[in-house]
Design a binder for these strands. Structure first.
Length: 825
RNA sequence: GCGGGAGUGACAGAGUGGUCAAAUGUGCUGGCUUGAGGUGCCAGUCCCUUAGUGGGUGCGCAGGUUCGAAUCCUGUCUCUCGCACCA
């Protein structure tokens, strides 16, 4: 359809001109938000398009339902690709990004997404990132941002450090090159302070279970106890963390992380010192990532020292080993080889005794012959007589009480979550607003700290570090020579609060107006891919809690409802350039129009699941829209015999679609629209003009969530985009009527079939009557005309009472009630 | 190993206790439209049987609950995704 493009462009212009989608001040609010995109130079991909099709369908639905919808769009515009483009193509990141954003906006408008464009934000705009800096300083003031030397993940390819969340299998999440470990002074945000709250509040979120569990795992809470082991020949103590105090009597050695600073104290001046240092270097530097693999062979060294188990005063040797992590717990563990697989492997290798203290109910364990650790539930044995015989699950609680009472240890909770490292040694990001003075120390810089434009992109190092004017500053306190921080912030900082800035994006004086935040937050519906399960979604939750504690807002969670869309595959695989199976949304729009693409994306299956793109599938949707469009050419009406049926069906689907929309079952909603449209199409001559038009109007309002342009074109009462959602009239839903209709359809089928055969077999037959013996005369009577017309046979009716008058044996076959019978002349 | 999700017709994908041989789309077959293997329309598309009717099998596999299951329970297999030496 040639005119399709014209239609779409026409309405897009009109919507913009009439500011149709600007959020209002009044009415019940609904904040609909898609995860804002990184504006890559390649333009929208199908995943974006799908994401926005979902959001727009939902936003349009909510608007039609009378909500005051805030539906903004912005760009996560800082980041590496722009900088890489700068190095490669000699184009300034700013220029590259601006160009990409322009293209994104153009394409999004071409899709007809109903954003409130007044709310636009770009994170690379100083008007945005100066508030990043402001926030950072607030965090700094409140002890939530701190600088520390720590082993950090270094990606040589990207030339920057990475957060733990950005390391996947020891590789950079972006470029997939191997990550190394470096000791560097870096800025951290204290997300661990909120570990418990972040974990606890997950239960109140209406999110996909998978994402919730991923976050829970990432935070990784374990409840246990820290136990003090005295050191032999020393006043010092060694703390270990365990969740299994029930195995305390089975401890046969203690293991420390090699890089634990205490190790050096233990071995200083002994014959073990050199070996230990060598081993530590090997493990910590060379094998940082290989080390963290389960089947990596356990390796270790004896330190020459002993620890004393507080509960039985037994002396046990202290080892260091590659499988113990410094960052977790106390960096030292009590080893119970009988009941922990790692300890078991280690003990067997280094010939350390194994002592069984938990026994399965059904059989005995032999410490000498065991092939693996026994880690299941069981009965406590060989321990203190107070606990022997207890179920070990109960014993854990009792032993913790006992240890606390005896002051041997303290109940502790440990988390896997680490603080968030936000320093990046790159140019295209928010400068960290800090200066360093040799005399005065670390000081906040005056903000905004603007990114200088005149930088050179050599591809080596951080351009800001080579920009003298930028990093040479006066100390704000003493006026002496000082150095400005040249690191920029992780771009996840930008995206951790952007949803707040949308609400008050033009505020020059404040980060946002708290009253407006109170009005609009939390986001009612957030929509995005599952790839941000632990990155963005965790950071944003942390920011909101931190900002709450600083007094900037009053909510606890940013996103109550989250919808994760699935991925779209082609030929059973993820779309990728290398596989050559990429569907380009803009090409598809050229061919079929935005309406078709959007409707197909939502029709192809459950939007929450992965689905398969089918070139033929989109054809079907295209045909459906064309069919609807054909309603524009008025059919000369017409009978009204199907009016009631149509009304019944219509009201039924209004009811159903209203539910579907709230549950993101867009595929079902579209399906229902198709069914009804098909009915109207086949029955168009049997429906009165009034009912037909009225039904079409309501269908268009619902359809406009998916195919807004074509719906506008056909709608004749103002803008369909702001029309009120139809209400289902329960009174008109008549299942009985629809059932009867089905029966009539069957009847017509039957008659046609019979007649066809009769014709074939008896060509000399002139007239052919069909006698119908109805169950309920009334319905059939009403439909006789219809049946007669649609079968081109003369129809006669017999009521049940007349059945006997009719003589079926005469000429026709056996007549059954409700079935047609033939009568030939 | 732990944890999520999923297994339905030629394919994709609906359907979560009866109204299901199972929506819708695609594919395939036949008919009409047409200059046309293009568009559009109509019909058919598990198996057997019939002029119409009718009957049988069927929703990964094996059991169970129920008057009745694709739908609930148990076991089992397969696929997929996330986390993974966290003590």
């Amino acid at each position: 359809m040639k005119e399709l493009k014209e239609i779409e462009l026409k309405w897009q212009k009109k919507w913009e001109k009439d500011k149709l989608f600007v959020a209002k001040e009044k009415g019940k609010k609904c904040y609909v938000l898609e995860m804002f995109p990184y504006p890559s130079g390649l333009g929208l991909h199908l995943g974006h398009t799908f994401n926005y099709s979902i959001g727009d369908a939902y936003a349009r639905f909510k608007r039609a339902r009378g909500f005051n919808v805030l539906y903004p769009m912005g760009y996560d515009a800082f980041g590496l690709p722009a900088e890489n483009a700068a190095i490669k193509e000699k184009i300034h990141p700013k220029e590259y990004t601006e160009k990409s954003i322009k293209n994104f906006i153009f394409q999004q408008k071409r899709l007809g997404i109903s954003y409130d464009w007044n709310k636009l934000i770009k994170t690379c705009d100083p008007e945005y990132y100066k508030w990043n800096q402001w926030l950072f300083l607030k965090f700094f003031e409140n002890g939530l941002a701190y600088r520390a030397k720590a082993p950090v993940n270094w990606c040589g390819h990207c030339g920057t450090v990475l957060a733990n969340e950005q390391v996947e299998d020891g590789e950079c999440w972006r470029c997939h090159s191997k990550v190394e470990i470096k000791q560097l002074e870096q800025w951290f945000l204290k997300i661990t302070k909120y570990a418990d709250e972040l974990l606890k509040d997950i239960s109140g979120l209406n999110w996909n279970e998978k994402i919730k569990i991923m976050q829970k795992n990432w935070i990784g809470r374990s409840d246990g106890i820290e136990i003090d082991f005295k050191l032999k020949n020393s006043e010092d103590k060694l703390k270990v963390f365990t969740t299994r105090p029930d195995t305390l009597w089975g401890v046969t050695f203690v293991v420390m992380a090699p890089e634990n600073p205490k190790v050096f104290d233990l071995v200083r001046g002994t014959k073990y010192e050199n070996e230990i240092k060598k081993f530590t270097n090997k493990v910590v530097i060379d094998e940082k990532y290989e080390r963290a693999v389960e089947d990596k062979e356990k390796e270790g060294l004896f330190t020459g020292r002993y620890a004393i188990n507080p509960v039985n005063n037994q002396e046990v040797p202290i080892y260091i080993a590659n499988f113990v992590l410094l960052e977790y717990g106390t960096g030292a563990v009590m080893a119970v080889p009988a009941h922990d697989q790692r300890d078991f492997e280690f003990a067997r290798k280094y010939k350390i005794p194994v002592k069984v203290v938990i026994k399965p109910k059904e059989y005995e364990l032999d410490a000498e012959k065991m092939m693996k650790a026994y880690v299941d539930m069981g009965i406590v044995i060989n321990s203190d007589k107070i606990f022997n015989g207890m179920n070990n699950f109960d014993a854990i609680k009792e032993i913790i009480k006992y240890l606390e009472k005896k002051k041997f240890g303290k109940r502790t909770i440990n988390y896997k979550l680490r603080d968030w490292l936000i320093s990046r040694q790159r140019y295209w990001g928010t400068p960290i607003p800090i200066i360093y003075c040799d005399k005065c120390g670390i000081l906040p810089a005056e903000i905004p700290v603007l990114l200088p434009d005149d930088v050179k992109f050599s591809g080596e190092g951080n351009p800001l570090a080579n920009h003298e004017k930028f990093h040479k500053v006066e100390c704000t306190k003493c006026g002496g020579d000082a150095r400005r921080e040249t690191d920029t912030m992780d771009t996840f900082f930008d995206s951790s609060w952007y949803f707040l800035r949308f609400i008050d994006n033009k505020n020059e004086k404040k980060i946002f107006d708290a009253k407006k935040i109170e009005k609009w937050m939390p986001v009612d519906q957030y929509i995005g891919g599952a790839e941000h399960a632990v990155l963005h979604l965790l950071y944003a939750r942390f920011f909101v809690k931190a900002m709450r504690d600083i007094g900037l807002l009053e909510i606890d969670e940013p996103f109550i409802n989250l919808f994760n869309q699935g991925m779209i595959n082609k030929n059973g695989m993820r779309m990728s350039k290398s596989k050559g199976n990429v569907i380009d949304p803009m090409e598809t729009i050229e061919k079929y129009g935005a309406d078709t693409l959007r409707t197909y994306l939502l029709f192809m299956g459950d939007p929450g699941k992965n689905r398969e793109w089918d070139d033929k599938g989109i054809e079907g949707v295209y045909r459906f829209l064309k069919k609807i469009y054909s309603f524009k050419n008025k059919i000369k009406p017409r009978l009204n015999i199907k009016d009631k049926i149509l009304e019944s069906k219509l009201n039924q689907i209004i009811k159903e679609i209203t539910v579907d929309m709230d549950e993101f079952k867009f595929n079902l909603a579209i399906n229902r629209l198709m069914q009804l449209t098909n009915f109207m199409h086949t029955q168009k001559e049997n429906i009165s003009a009034k009912v037909f038009d009225d039904s079409l109007k309501k269908i268009l309002i619902m359809l406009s969530c998916f195919a807004p342009h074509i719906s506008e074109e056909l709608f004749e009462n103002g803008y369909v985009s702001v029309a009120e959602w139809p209400k289902a009239d329960e009174k008109k839903i008549d299942k009985k009527l629809e059932d009867d209709e089905e029966q009539i359809e069957k009847l017509i089928d039957d008659i046609n079939n019979v007649a066809k055969i009769v014709k074939e077999k008896n060509k000399d037959i002139k007239k052919c009557f069909v006698y119908v013996l109805p169950k309920e005369l009334k319905i059939y009577n009403d439909s006789i005309e219809d049946i007669s017309r649609r079968t081109s046979f003369e129809i006669k009716i017999f009521s049940v009472a007349d059945k006997d008058k009719h003589d079926p044996e005469k000429k026709s076959s056996k007549a059954k009630i409700g079935k047609p019978a033939l009568y030939l002349e």
